[in-house]
């Protein structure tokens, strides 16, 4: 695996173990409480899971955290910086990147460009030097390109970097989504069902990669996943949502034995049987 620099990340602040502190956020769509009073404390290098039945509000939580929707209550702090009220692109700059449940790559950009796109977040050269092709600009571009290329190595996508993103296999497209999010240099990575549609072999590899990414990039990861095996295997803590509300939170072991969780997944009757 390629050795990716993590130099320009802020030094970990050992004093507060919590990186992402979320307190009582929520949103309603018309009469529907899609998410209500959601809280989570994600520590540095934490790998947490977010599960729940279909329509429980998991993706909506991600949309709230990333500024796609504005939360109607509560607070979101990243490294003690308040994120409530920021626009989606500002949240990325602040350090939260995400992937999408239904893959949303840019079909008109090739694999490498999909990843390079995030380079503009940290680019300092303006329009004038872009158009004049100054040396500094050329250097910055090649740095962005080098970094993107290196990141593609995480999933062995380097050979295919000049192909259109949509020519990749489904599994590779999911990988590319993760790489693209990493290119934004985030402190927190939100993965929305990264294993959906993968076979069991691929899922195993994905689990390894996720751990590897957390370790090399010194990230906190919040993972939405329907595959219980995967979640129980890699997550340290799991939060369970049902009908927009947190119904349980704990270690995989605790979650597996929580009657409320079983009820949510199997219907109320099953729990009492």
């Amino acid at each position: 695996m390629t050795n990716v620099s993590t130099a320009n990340r802020t030094a970990p602040n050992q004093a507060s173990p919590t990186l992402l502190a979320v307190e009582g956020i929520g949103i309603r769509f018309g009469g529907l409480k899609a998410v209500d009073g959601f809280s989570i404390n994600l520590p540095r290098r934490g790998l947490y899971g977010l599960i729940g039945p279909n329509g429980a509000g998991k993706t909506t939580v991600f949309n709230l955290l990333t500024g796609v929707y504005q939360t109607q209550a509560g607070r979101i702090f990243l490294d003690s910086r308040n994120l409530v009220g920021l626009k989606a692109h500002q949240v990325v700059a602040a350090g939260i990147a995400r992937t999408f449940q239904n893959i949303r790559l840019f079909p008109g950009l090739n694999v490498l460009d999909n990843v390079q796109l995030a380079g503009q977040l940290h680019a300092r050269e303006g329009l004038a030097s872009t158009l004049l092709r100054t040396r500094r600009y050329a250097h910055e571009e090649s740095e962005i390109r080098r970094k993107a290329f290196e990141l593609l190595g995480l999933f062995g996508l380097q050979e295919r970097c000049l192909e259109p993103a949509t020519s990749l296999s489904y599994g590779h497209q999911r990988h590319l989504e993760i790489v693209r999010a990493l290119a934004a240099n985030p402190k927190v990575l939100l993965l929305d069902e990264p294993a959906a549609g993968l076979n069991s072999q691929e899922k195993l590899e994905l689990a390894k990669s996720i751990r590897h990414i957390r370790d090399t990039f010194d990230l906190a990861i919040l993972l939405i996943e329907h595959d219980m095996g995967l979640v129980m295997d890699i997550c340290e803590q799991i939060t369970v949502l049902d009908h927009g509300e947190v119904i349980a939170h704990g270690t995989p072991h605790e979650i597996q034995n929580d009657p409320k969780v079983i009820a949510a997944y199997l219907g109320a009757d099953a729990a009492t049987v």
Partner: peptide, 29 residues
């Protein structure tokens, strides 16, 4: 041509392809 092959150009194309995903990649749409 310089625009098309630059950070700004990629950002433009990403806005065209999927404004929402572009925003989620930090593009100031």
């Amino acid at each position: 041509f310089r625009l098309k092959r630059s950070s700004l150009g990629r950002a433009m194309i990403s806005v065209r392809e999927d404004e929402f995903a572009a925003q989620a990649m930090g593009v100031h749409v």
